[in-house]
Simulated assay, not measured.
Amino acid sequence: MRIAPLLALVLVSTTGCAAFREDSATASGKVGVAAAFYPLAFVAQEVGGDHVAVTNLTQAGKEPHDLELDIKTTADVADAELVLVEHGFQPTVDDAVAQVATGDVLDVADVVDLEGDDPHFWQDPARMATLTEAVADELADLDPDHADTFRANADRLVGELRDLDGAYADGLRGCERDTIVVSHDAFGYLAKYGLQIEGIAGLSPEAEPTPADLARLQDLIRSDGITTVFSERLVSPRLTAQLAKDMGITTEVLDPIEGLSDETSQEDYLSLMRENLAALEQANGCPA
C-alpha cells in the first residue's frame, strides 16, 4: 500500500482533529516523536525519557524493509513534532515524510557517516552515539525547558555506547577466525572490528542467492573452518538452516536489531548487541 491513495484521507483526518491533538499535546507536555524503525525509536526514548511520546512506525515483529504505511501510521508522521528517518531505507516512510510531515525531520543520513548503500549503521555503536547527540539537539530545540535533561540522558547513553564499542573491539581481537556467514548483509558495519562478513542474501533479506553464491559460501566454510551459520529472528531461517545442514555445522541467532519480536520484547538495543557479541566470540573462537 503506497502513500498517495491515502493522502487525501489522512489530510482530512488530521485536519479534522487538529484541535483535539493540540489540546492533548499541551496537556501531556511531551514532544511527539515518530521513529521509522526500532533503533531510532530506542535512541529517541532513551534521550527523551518521560518528556517524549515515541511512536515506532514499524510494528514489533515486522521486518522494517517490508514496511507499508496505513492511515494510522501515516497520520502519526503528520502529527509528530519530530520525525526520525533514514532516507532510502524505507521508501514508504520517505513518501509519507515528503507528503504529510509538518514537524521537524531528522534524517540519519544527514548526521551519520553511512557506508555506501548499507543502511544498517546501528551495528556500529559509535555511529549510534553520533545519532544520540543529534537527537538530543533536536529535542532541546523543541522543548528548551527540558534541554538539560535531554543532554544528560544523551551523555549517559553515549557513555554506554562507547563502552559497547570498546567491548566489541576487545572481544573480537585475536580470534581463531574472522569470517562470519549471516543470513543477509545487515552486519557490514562490524567490519571495523576486523570481521569479514559474508551474507547469504543481499542488503534486503528477501534477496535470493544464486547457486554460484551458495557454492562459493560452501567453499569458504570449508577453507576457513567456519563452525556456525547465523540466522536472524524477523525473517525465515530457511536458507541458513539448509546451508548449515548441507555443511554439517550449527546455526545460531545473530540479531540485526532492526526490530524487537515477542522473544526479545524485554530486551533492548544494548542487551541485544551484547548477546550478539557473545555469539560472535563463541563462533569465532575468540579468547575469553
Results as ranks from 00 to 15, higher is better:
Ile3Ser: 05
Arg21Gln: 14
Gly188Leu: 04
Leu7Val: 14
Ala201Val: 05
Ser28Pro: 13
Arg162Ile: 13
Pro5Lys: 04
Thr250Ser: 15
Met273Pro: 02
Gln282Val: 07
Leu9Trp: 09
Ala34Gln: 03
Val43Trp: 00
Asp163Thr: 14
Ala212Gly: 13
Asn153Leu: 01
His65Ser: 08
Thr179Glu: 07
Ala288Val: 08
Ala152Phe: 09
Ala126Cys: 07
Ala60Ile: 12
Asp170Tyr: 02
Phe121Gln: 04
Gly171Asn: 05
Pro125Ile: 07
Asp268Gln: 09
Gln59Arg: 15
Gln242Arg: 12
Glu115Ala: 15
His120Ala: 07
Leu157His: 00
Gly285Met: 02
Val135Cys: 06
Met273Asn: 07
Gln282His: 06
Ala129Ser: 12
Met1Phe: 11
Leu270Asp: 12
Ala129Arg: 00
Glu160His: 06
Val229Lys: 00
Gly159His: 06
Val47Cys: 10
Val112Gln: 13
Tyr189Cys: 08
Ser271Thr: 04
Thr250Tyr: 10
Val43Cys: 13
Leu272Met: 08
Asp170Cys: 09
Val93Thr: 08
Lys62Arg: 12
Ala4Arg: 11
Thr227Arg: 10
Ile180Phe: 00
Ala186Ser: 03
Ala126Arg: 08
Ser24Asn: 15
Ala154Gln: 07
Val235Glu: 05
Ala129Tyr: 02
Asp185Ser: 10
Gly61Lys: 09
Thr210Cys: 14
Thr26Phe: 12
Asp170Met: 10
Ala278Lys: 11
Ser261Gln: 11
Ile71Val: 14
Ala152Leu: 11
Phe150Met: 06
Asp66Tyr: 08
Asp262Ser: 14
Asp246Gly: 02
Leu106Ser: 03
Ala27Thr: 14
Val10Phe: 01
Ala191Asn: 12
Gly199Leu: 06
Ile180Trp: 01
Asp224Gln: 14
Ala278Phe: 03
Trp122His: 01
Leu57Glu: 06
Ala78Phe: 02
Ile221Ser: 03
Glu252Arg: 09
Pro39Ile: 00
Gln282Leu: 13
Ala126Phe: 01
Ala278Ile: 07
Gly29Glu: 07
Gly202Gln: 04
Gln242Pro: 10
Ser183Tyr: 08
Tyr269Phe: 06
Gly29Tyr: 02
Leu6Gly: 05
Leu84Val: 00
Ala169Gln: 14
Thr264Cys: 08
Thr132Cys: 05
Leu106Gly: 04
Pro91Glu: 15
Leu139Met: 02
Ile249Pro: 05
Asp268Gly: 04
Pro211Glu: 10
Phe150Ile: 02
Thr264Ser: 10
Leu9Cys: 11
Ala147Tyr: 05
Val54Ile: 00
Ala126Val: 09
Ala169Pro: 13
Asp262Gln: 11
Val93Leu: 07
Lys62Ile: 07
Asp213Thr: 01
Ala186Asn: 06
Gly199Ala: 10
Trp122Val: 03
Pro119Lys: 05
Ala35Tyr: 01
Cys175Val: 01
Phe121Val: 06
Ala60Leu: 15
Leu234Thr: 13
Lys72Pro: 08
Glu133Pro: 05
Leu9Val: 01
Ala60Thr: 15
Thr55Pro: 00
Met128Tyr: 00
Tyr269Arg: 05
Pro91Thr: 10
Val33Lys: 01
Gly202Asp: 12
Leu9Gln: 13
Val158Ile: 01
Thr26Ile: 10
Asp143Ser: 09
Val12Trp: 07
Asp50Ala: 13
Leu239Cys: 13
Ile249Phe: 03
Ala35Gln: 06
Ala101Asn: 09
Val54Asn: 05
Ser223Ala: 15
Leu69Phe: 00
Asp107Glu: 11
Leu157Phe: 05
Val33His: 01
